[in-house]
Design a protein around this nucleic acid. Structure first.
Lengths: 196, 196
DNA sequence: GTCTATACTCCGATAGAC
DNA sequence: GTCTATCGGAGTATAGAC
């Protein structure tokens, strides 16, 4: 962007993370590969390893950014939904569907089993903050005890993730149904769970 | 099983399908490979290709069996739920969670995008029958118009698939929460959607 | 910091012996 | 109908030149 350095991107590290999002959105975690990310950026397959020790470290950085951005999107959606606590929590389901459809980085990436034992404090902090945001929304929405709060968060995530996953897998004839329609259905379904 | 033939399994074809289920349950479609299935059966990596033209034909056969067995499980669960049409549809969500947790072959395998253009009449018939069963349950459960029926089926599958996917990805700390608990939550959530 | 080149592993699939 | 052997391709990761 700024400095016309010796070769491309003044910041390959950031470019790798950005391109990883695009690859995930197109192909899913299933066919994600460091080599393909490098190819898309026009750098050699060795270049990423100057910035990330291995594949998992790159994915961990993506997970960190995704947790941060998803949390921001959820908070914005909750605020846009107004003051009703149930509507605010339900709105998080819509934000999840839209964010993951756009970026390809949802729960499967953010909390990927593959990353379970990767030491990365930044990621820990962001995933924790994301969960805290959800727990706060659920707490405000009427769940009383902590276990109830957790169950409500899990149900909301499950319905949002379910719609997202079906959408990503082409179950909805992807071309014919806009993502905003799917997001609206997820909000409605989440609302039904919350008021139940 | 029966004839003590020249080498192992009298029926490698059936054994391949069975072992594919086990591999899917353990590793998901993500790391499924024909070579690994062959390895587990103690046959060479070339052997499967005597019975299936390629990887997708094997997966298609798995999809066919999964659609048939899942439909049977759903019908049994609906019947076990009694006469209330809403309870019958909700029960299908529980059957889905249990079946996929056990076999690894859910919507992502049965309706895999990878198999979209594989010609396989048996598979077409079974996936169609599965969908018909779900549409019938939803129709009985109160959805009036055809689009409403479809929306209700999609919502039920989304919630069942969401819980299943989170469970498979280890989001629930797999060791500590039994699959039957997750299935019960899916039934409850589906019930909330249906009565909404 | 990026490149070229390479080693290693795994998978899908085929050819030909038995 | 299964085996051995093999090819081609893709991915992860490293070594060493520049």
């Amino acid at each position: 962007m700024s400095p016309g350095r010796s070769y491309h991107h003044g910041d390959l590290r950031a470019a790798l993370i950005e391109a990883s999002f695009e690859l995930l959105a197109e192909c899913g975690l299933r066919r994600f590969s460091v080599a393909e990310v490098a190819r898309r950026l026009g750098v050699s397959s060795a270049a990423p390893y100057r910035h990330f020790a291995d594949r998992r470290q790159l994915l961990s950085a993506v997970s960190t950014a995704a947790a941060r951005d998803l949390r921001t999107a959820i908070e914005a959606a909750a605020d846009a939904a107004g003051d009703d606590p149930a509507a605010r929590l339900a709105a998080s389901a819509g934000a999840y569907v839209r964010y993951v459809a756009r970026t390809g980085a949802g729960i499967q990436v953010i909390y990927a089993a593959e990353l379970y034992d990767v030491a990365d404090d930044a990621r820990r902090e962001q995933t924790r903050a994301l969960m805290t945001t959800m727990l706060d929304l659920a707490g405000a929405a009427g769940a009383r005890t902590y276990p109830e709060v957790v169950l409500l968060v899990e149900a909301t995530i499950a319905v949002a993730h379910g719609y997202t996953s079906l959408f990503a897998d082409g179950f909805f004839a992807r071309n014919s149904i806009p993502v905003d329609d799917i997001a609206a259905r997820a909000v409605e379904a989440a609302g039904a769970l919350i008021s139940h």
